[in-house]
Computed example of a mutant assay.
Amino acid sequence: MLFPRRSLLAASALAMPTLAQSGDALAQARPTIKIGWTTSDGAQDPYAMAAHYFKEELAKRVGERIDVQLFANRALGDERPLLDGMRLGTVDMGVITNAVIAQVEPAYQINDMPFLFSDAAAAQRVLDGQVGQSLAQRLATKGVVNLGYCEGGFRQMINNTRPIVNPADLRGVKFRVLQSPIYVGMYTALGGTAVPMAWGETFTAVQQGAIDGLEIPLAVIDANKYYEVTKYLSMTNHIYSMIALLMSKRSHDRLAPDLRAAVQEAGTAATARQRTAAATNARALVGSLAQHGMTVNEVADPAAFRRAVMPMYESFRGAIGADIVRDALAAAG
């Protein structure tokens, strides 16, 4: 689905349509919520699923009282401008990668700590509990409401140089990473080369050989056709990719109380649906990507990767918050 490019101003929060006049009666105006995200509008894209499920769940609760409009493929801008727009009230909602949220609220870096979660159930246990509540409260003070911790799946490494079987295989390989000190730190600890880069530039950079590869969830590899420009898929499971369904606090607070409650309920319901669908899709995607020509491998010794990155936990404790690190490690088991 293609959308016209719009300025952030055009995505102004909860823009109220002009009241239409029919005879002597004025039709009731309804608020509009515009949701943006940077990846595709594919049926299996985890960002797209979060947005569509939210729209469906909200409609179940309020009918046509709110007009939800969806904008994929960076139609409202890249992730950091989307997030900044939410803080200012010029963007209503977005589905945003955790590492970008952490640029605004550093405590969110806990979700990107490598090899923290053994599986998706452990990650959801942490995010649905005290740690997730604390993160949401901190983000609210920055002007953004967290409506749900959705699932992008575990991030894997793809590249055109060699399979990543052991940490030593990363040496000399240039990987695009999110613009996050944790992602840069992880590749440094493992002996690779990290190249921070905006998402919109990445496909072309791989295609032209400016970088060798990137790290990315399976669903995003498939939805954005990265199998066309990369050869090796290594199942490193190094970081659990949390993607958040976020809303501008200004947009949220302008709604009537009953509509605010419906938005919160819709966020919770959409998150549950999105997690289930994302997990189902991930199980099928490995075989599909292999059929598209990617060479798939498991890592030989996951513990070797964990040992290499463990010093990061101490170095990031201050930036994240000692209490968040402590509680996340305890809840993750």
Rank of each mutant, 00 (worst) to 15 (best):
Q274C: 04
G152E: 03
A107Y: 04
I243W: 03
Q69H: 12
H252Q: 11
R326I: 14
G132S: 09
P114K: 12
Y227K: 01
D45V: 00
P31M: 09
K225A: 13
F316G: 09
L214E: 07
A72H: 05
R74H: 11
Q207S: 04
Q274V: 00
M49Q: 02
A107L: 07
R125C: 12
T90F: 13
A75W: 04
A168P: 04
L83V: 06
A121N: 13
V325C: 07
G42C: 08
M235W: 09
L82Q: 02
R171A: 15
T204P: 01
M242I: 03
A290P: 00
L76I: 11
D258F: 03
I96V: 04
A15F: 15
E105C: 11
R30C: 03
V126F: 12
F175K: 03
Q208V: 01
V206D: 08
N297P: 00
R65T: 12
R283I: 02
L245W: 07
D78S: 10
G152V: 02
M312G: 03
A51Y: 00
V104P: 05
V296D: 00
T202H: 08
A11V: 06
M235T: 04
E64G: 08
M1V: 06
S248Y: 14
R138L: 14
D41H: 05
A48C: 12
T268P: 00
A15L: 15
A75P: 00
R171M: 12
T202F: 13
A270I: 02
A284D: 07
P31T: 03
W199Q: 13
P167W: 01
T18I: 06
E79S: 11
M186F: 13
A11T: 02
F115E: 01
A219Y: 01
A122Q: 09
D67K: 08
A332M: 14
T193Q: 13
L26D: 01
E215Q: 03
T161L: 06
L83S: 07
R162A: 15
Q264D: 15
A319Y: 02
K55C: 08
A72Q: 03
V62E: 05
E265T: 01
